[in-house]
């Protein structure tokens, strides 16, 4: 059968390529590349952002050889546990559910409140009407449990567009991500209502079986907190915000 021959051929190639020289172990860092200012693709087509600069610094301190990999948000955890990369730095809040499946380092960005954004001039009632959120985010489940009507869009871009064109009264998302957008809107969009605290700080995700790697990054994060360089980095990327580490 040609089919079995083909499968055998594929298997053979798969088994013989790049024979084991596992000496220099490169740490593959997973990120999404679509969540400015945490991580995004810059105009040169390279990953950039707070987490990229931080990750590179952590690798330098931990004396690791690191490389960045982008992955779709929806499958970012399954691909970590199946070993396609070794860490996640993607603006991921430390939550109890995620912690059951993967391990986190201690946070490298403090818990960021979520905020509502509506068209300028809207009152607080915009937060209880139709609220847009990105599918499968903690904000989406928060709105679903509240009295407001949740409407879920595939991307962050779509949620903002929904507010602009009147499909939704407001959008709920991370404050830091929304701030950029509100600033750039030229007064069309504005924060509305009270912030809500959902989710914990942002940490680096690693496999539960990868305690050694977690330890190295943990130490590097602690060192950066102690010498104030983490605060400086946050201030640089988040409009002078004082994280107070």
């Amino acid at each position: 059968m040609t089919f079995t021959k083909l499968m055998a051929g594929i298997a053979l190639v798969a088994l013989t390529t790049t024979s084991a020289i596992a000496g220099s172990h490169t740490v593959r860092m997973g990120t999404e590349g679509a969540y400015a200012p945490y991580n995004f693709i810059n105009d040169n087509g390279e990953v950039d952002g707070y987490e990229i600069e931080l990750g590179n610094e952590l690798c330098k301190r931990a004396e690791l050889d690191c490389t960045w990999v982008t992955n779709d948000w929806d499958s970012i955890i399954p691909n970590l546990v199946s070993g396609n990369y070794d860490t996640i730095m993607a603006g991921m809040s430390i939550t109890a559910e995620r912690d059951e499946v993967i391990d986190f380092t201690s946070e490298y960005f403090p818990a960021d409140p979520s905020s509502y954004v509506a068209l300028a001039g809207a009152g607080a009632e915009a937060t209880t009407g139709t609220v847009a959120a990105q599918t499968a985010t903690i904000q989406a489940s928060y709105v679903a449990s509240s009295d407001a009507t949740v409407v879920e869009y595939a991307t962050m871009e779509d949620t903002i567009a929904a507010v602009r064109n009147g499909e939704a009264d407001s959008v709920l998302a991370d404050h830091a991500a929304l701030k950029d957008i509100v600033d750039a809107s030229g007064g069309v969009l504005a924060f509305v209502g009270d912030d809500v605290a959902i989710g914990g700080g942002v940490g680096m995700g690693v496999r539960e079986s990868d305690g050694e790697l977690r330890g190295k990054f943990e130490a590097a994060i602690a060192a950066m907190k102690a010498d104030g360089s983490l605060n400086a980095l946050i201030a640089k990327w988040f409009d002078g915000r004082d994280a107070g580490y």
Binding site: A132, T135, A144, T149, V151, Y153, A154, D158, A162, E167
Partner: peptide, 9 residues
């Protein structure tokens, strides 16, 4: 999956 929004889950 990629186009229309889902209301009330």
């Amino acid at each position: 999956f990629s186009s229309f929004p889902a209301w009330r889950q």
